Simulated scan of single mutants.
Amino acid sequence: MKGYRMPDIHLDSTDRAILTRLQRDGRIANVDLAEQISLSPSSCLRRTKALEAQGVIAGYRAELDRDRLGLGLTVFVELKAARHSREVSRQVEAELTAIPAVVACHLVSGDADFFVEAVVPSLAVYEEVLLDHILAIEGVTSVRSSFALRTVLSRGPLPLDASLSKGTRSS
């Protein structure tokens, strides 16, 4: 396939320990991180900087409480496109990602072409987003919305240890 290549990143157990800990607390001081994974601070910093340079660590950000910010309604939207082409897909992607309420967007297989997660303060605001933005996208032929009743897990860390590849979850 054009443009596809296997990742050339090799993570040893120390790299995985750094990444696992940083996923739980991206603000941890390097000296504390180094102590928790039994490395010298200089070695830990060097490895962390290398993971950043390789793009394994894509960035750091604050996690915000949606409810406390008045964004308590999470909507999952399945979209179908009129035609399946790279051009239509790029146009729909560009317009979806320009909508501030959209916090995640995936091109998917199955009954829908796109799966979107939107966060809004109320059903009335979602109606505006749906009618004024999503349904206004040229090429969108069908929309189906589902509403989250309760969030069970929304920001789990990526599974980096070997036991998780066998279908088990550890804490």
Rank of each mutant, 00 (worst) to 15 (best):
K2Y: 10
Y4I: 08
Y4E: 11
M6H: 13
D8V: 05
I9N: 08
I9H: 07
H10T: 10
L11K: 02
S13D: 09
D15A: 07
D15K: 02
R16P: 10
A17N: 03
A17C: 08
A17E: 06
I18P: 00
I18D: 05
L22M: 14
Q23S: 05
Q23L: 09
G26H: 03
G26C: 07
R27C: 15
N30A: 15
N30E: 14
V31A: 14
Q36P: 01
L39R: 15
S40Y: 07
P41E: 05
S42Q: 13
S43K: 02
C44L: 07
R46D: 13
R47I: 02
K49G: 03
E52C: 03
A53W: 11
A53N: 12
A53K: 12
V56E: 10
I57P: 03
A58V: 05
G59R: 00
Y60S: 13
R61C: 15
R66W: 11
R68P: 05
G70T: 01
G70N: 02
L73S: 08
V75W: 02
V77E: 02
L79R: 07
L79Q: 05
K80D: 11
K80M: 15
A81V: 06
A81R: 04
A81E: 04
A82I: 05
A82W: 11
H84E: 10
H84Q: 12
S85C: 00
E87M: 13
V88N: 03
V88L: 01
S89N: 14
S89T: 08
V92A: 09
E93G: 08
L96C: 03
T97F: 12
A98S: 15
A98L: 12
I99L: 02
V102M: 00
V102Q: 02
V102W: 01
V103P: 09
A104D: 10
A104V: 06
C105M: 06
C105L: 03
L107M: 11
L107P: 10
S109T: 11
S109C: 14
G110C: 10
A112W: 02
D113W: 00
F114E: 01
F115S: 13
V116K: 01
E117R: 10
V119Y: 04
V119E: 04
P121K: 01
L123T: 14
L123Y: 15
L123Q: 15
Y126W: 05
E128I: 12
V129Y: 06
V129H: 07
V129E: 10
L130T: 07
L131Q: 15
D132F: 11
D132P: 12
H133N: 11
H133P: 08
A136G: 08
I137Q: 02
T141N: 06
V143R: 07
V143C: 09
R144D: 13
S145K: 08
F147Q: 04
L149M: 15
L149T: 08
L153R: 14
S154I: 04
S154V: 03
R155A: 08
G156A: 13
P157W: 06
L160S: 02
D161Q: 14
L164A: 15
K166W: 07
